[in-house]
Amino acid sequence: MELNSRNNPQSGDLLISEPFLQDENFVRSVILICENNESGTFGLILNKLSILKLSDVIDRFHHLDQTVFVGGPVEQNTLHFIYLGNQLFDHSISLGNNLWWGGDFDELKDKLSSNEIDLDYFRFFLGYSGWSEGQLMEELETDTWIVCQLKESKNIFTSSPDDLWKIILKNMGGEFKHLANYPIDPRLN
């Protein structure tokens, strides 16, 4: 993973929260940027598990026990997904490195019904993280986020959500490797 230009995060980049961010929605979060344009930014928190399973969210799929993630505090009544591999659905958006965002939901349900997809390489999210025009840039200027390029998409799916923040910082090396070991509350150190 490489540090990206702070001034221009792209789709497929990661936002890593700085170690002392105390916003309960984003403490130690890793956010995948799905869209960043003149209107604003859309992203999904990769390491915040919900208490729900996919079977709780999609009717008729009572056999699916995959955990659903909290994508962010915005519109938590919406379901989003990413997946790794070849494009499987119409309207999926490429985020680079064989990582795809969304797609035709009816196609997804059909493929789930026929067991055509490997759920190990899917992540489902309730809600999303969003920034209005210029808002993310302001947060980047105040060092709220570290932006890095995602080089190995598979890590999103194979790393423990509890460890993802640390793993990414350690893989970035240099000063970031040291940030991975900062305590959440330095007063308790």
Rank of each mutant, 00 (worst) to 15 (best):
R6S: 14
R6H: 13
P9W: 00
D13F: 07
I16L: 13
S17P: 01
P19N: 05
D23K: 13
L32P: 00
E35A: 11
N36Y: 06
I45Y: 01
L46E: 08
L52T: 11
S55F: 02
R60S: 14
H62D: 14
H63W: 15
H63I: 14
D65W: 08
V68S: 03
V70W: 05
E75Q: 12
T78G: 04
T78Y: 02
N86V: 08
F89T: 01
F89D: 03
S92P: 05
G96H: 04
G102C: 02
E107N: 08
E107D: 13
D110G: 10
I117C: 00
L119W: 05
R123F: 02
F125A: 08
S129D: 07
Q135H: 11
Q135Y: 04
L136H: 02
L136A: 09
E138F: 09
E139P: 07
E139R: 08
E141M: 11
T144K: 09
W145V: 06
W145S: 07
I146F: 11
Q149F: 07
Q149N: 09
E152P: 04
W165R: 00
K166D: 10
K166C: 12
I168W: 02
L169H: 09
G174M: 05
G174P: 13
F176L: 14
H178V: 10
P183D: 14
P183S: 15
P186T: 06
